[in-house]
Design a protein around this nucleic acid. Structure first.
Lengths: 151, 151
DNA sequence: ACAAGACGGTTCGAATTTGAACAACCGCGT
DNA sequence: ACGCGGTTGTTCAAATTCGAACCGTCTTGT
């Protein structure tokens, strides 16, 4: 096996920066959403996807893919949201196996009221910290990184 | 309250890229370490910190800070590592309350054998996917992001 | 039409994470 | 010397996460 190519100083800085940034940003947003809207980030993202979809309904599997979470994790979170009345389950008309998660009126209201605070937090933690040129590099480069690891 | 400044397309791309990249990279490395070395990423990072420290020992609190994890989370992971004999606990000489986590010989061996594979995975998932100029931007920008959220 | 395999979603158990509560201890200021 | 706020690390319960196993259903090849 080939000699290990260790990380040089710049690479190490990027890697460590990535680790710290992801950890802190994630924790920060998690907390903001929990405090302001009583939602986990995962739950908020589910609501967003449903809110963007026609009729506010999306297949479970499709949701799981977009959310970078496991199927069972999604089942759990949707159940939580269902308990709170923010989401409803409906069986899929074209596939008996399928299940559609549907945004309820209350869910849409919750989303609407949570969104501004969340966007503000995202800006404060990440977006507004970056210069425009950095923003572009980030979108390009991280987009590539994520895409390469897609299943 | 001011009008919400929503994210424009570029900002959204950066934010989404960030979310997907962090999620996929994290999952990928978690899996690689678990498969190849039987360690979680958190555990691996603990070993690394201890390996870099003089005498291979570090105070619990200091470890927790560097690891972006909660105190209780660290207690748990160190206990796990202790069960496997990779780490030992030693009470701090200068502070009765304090506890030092100490890397055992076996821990050091495990770290040594896990490191090459992990570095390779980090390269494959992130570092080698970035051009040199992107790498620099990433280090700079994400470093700033992380630092701003430091307690 | 039919068998084989892929798919969709849930359930289960195990592992992990978090914050709050706790008990013991440090050290500064008086 | 003393008291009091701040630290240190652990424990606890609750929430979350994951993967593997599972069952019913779709779909593809023949």
């Amino acid at each position: 096996m080939a000699e290990t190519r260790w990380l040089d100083e710049r690479e190490m800085a990027a890697w460590h920066g990535f680790l710290e940034a992801t950890s802190r940003v994630s924790r920060r947003l998690e907390q903001q959403l929990k405090d302001d809207a009583g939602l986990s980030h995962a739950q908020y993202e589910i609501l967003v996807r449903l809110g963007d979809a026609p009729d506010g309904e999306v297949r479970m599997t499709e949701l799981a893919e977009g959310l970078f979470t496991s199927k069972s994790g999604l089942t759990y979170q949707v159940s939580q949201l269902e308990k709170r009345g923010l989401v409803r389950r409906r069986s899929c008309p074209t596939d008996v196996r399928g299940v559609l998660a549907v945004l309820t009126t209350e869910g849409r209201d919750t989303l609407r009221s949570a969104a501004p605070g969340h966007v503000a937090a995202v800006r404060e933690a990440l977006i507004d910290v970056l210069r425009p040129d950095e923003l572009d590099v980030m979108a390009e480069a991280l987009g590539r990184v994520g895409a390469r690891l897609r299943p």
